[in-house]
Design a protein around this nucleic acid. Structure first.
Lengths: 145, 145
DNA sequence: TATTGTTATACTCTATAACTATA
DNA sequence: TATAGTTATAGAGTATAACAATA
């Protein structure tokens, strides 16, 4: 299939294509671990923010409370995290359990290998440049200045 | 929420974040047009490859025949494309209809504006660099040499 | 045998709306 | 009033498995 000039010139489309390639490889790398890349991200966020509540986790993952609820249920059912009493009687405090920590370590290893393999054709300097450019993608703020 | 070193160093994660930001803006830009970015991409591919069949379209979009079928049904129902007799009696030839062409033009305009707005903080040279780096993300081929 | 389209079914992820308890 | 969690329900998008027609 021909990919015309319209598609080639859209940055958003090319970012999406790159993301699809990386995500497919990451999913394959995690296939043995029974968790999607997004669920692994959730585990990392909970580990790095112990005691966070579900709503905050959802915000960090760009999903709403209800979706965060489902995600947390799955991780709890698998014995990877735990809900503990939170800072008031409404909130849960999420913590990573030892089992989750162990599984996360194994997944991170597979994920790093996938990441390195997919970016093997870029030098360290190019990777730094890429991260910088990606980070600067976002709404133009000139109107609010 | 803290975003620890593990996440910051994963290129795949940062590509995904950038993609999420651009996709959200693109969806908002297309909200009036009743078609997702992926469906707009399908229209572009059909326009640039008139007479292509559903399976080829699916391959270009990284979805299987069955999913392509559903997508094509939606575009046909909206009067944007048409199934015509293909190169043999098994295949359909997909073509963009005038109505689809008009809607695609309007969507491209909105999409280009969104794309430009989200990349406004990058210079033309930086955008070229970004496209080059993104294009080089993919499986390392060294073992097959 | 292989391929294209098609249909039925199911799964994942996400969202909305409403409810409860708490603040 | 506002917020956190919860539940029920629904929609989009995708996949698998099977079948018919055609190659």
């Amino acid at each position: 299939m021909k990919q015309g000039a319209d598609l080639q010139s859209l940055i958003g489309y090319q970012v999406q294509r790159a993301n699809l390639r990386m995500d497919a490889d990451a999913r394959a790398a995690l296939a043995d671990h029974d968790l999607s890349p997004a669920k692994m991200t959730a585990l990392i966020l909970i580990r790095d923010n112990p005691g966070c509540d579900q709503t905050a986790l959802g915000r960090a993952l760009s999903i709403n409370r209800s979706s965060a609820m489902k995600l947390v249920n799955i991780l709890v059912d698998k014995g990877l995290i735990e809900r503990r009493p939170g800072r008031d009687l409404r909130t849960n405090a999420l913590v990573l359990l030892p089992h989750g920590e162990a599984q996360l370590a194994a997944m991170m290893k597979a994920m790093r290998a996938s990441d390195a393999q997919m970016t093997a054709r870029l030098s360290a300097a190019e990777l730094r440049t890429l991260l910088d450019l990606l980070d600067r993608i976002g709404p133009d703020d000139t109107e609010s200045e």
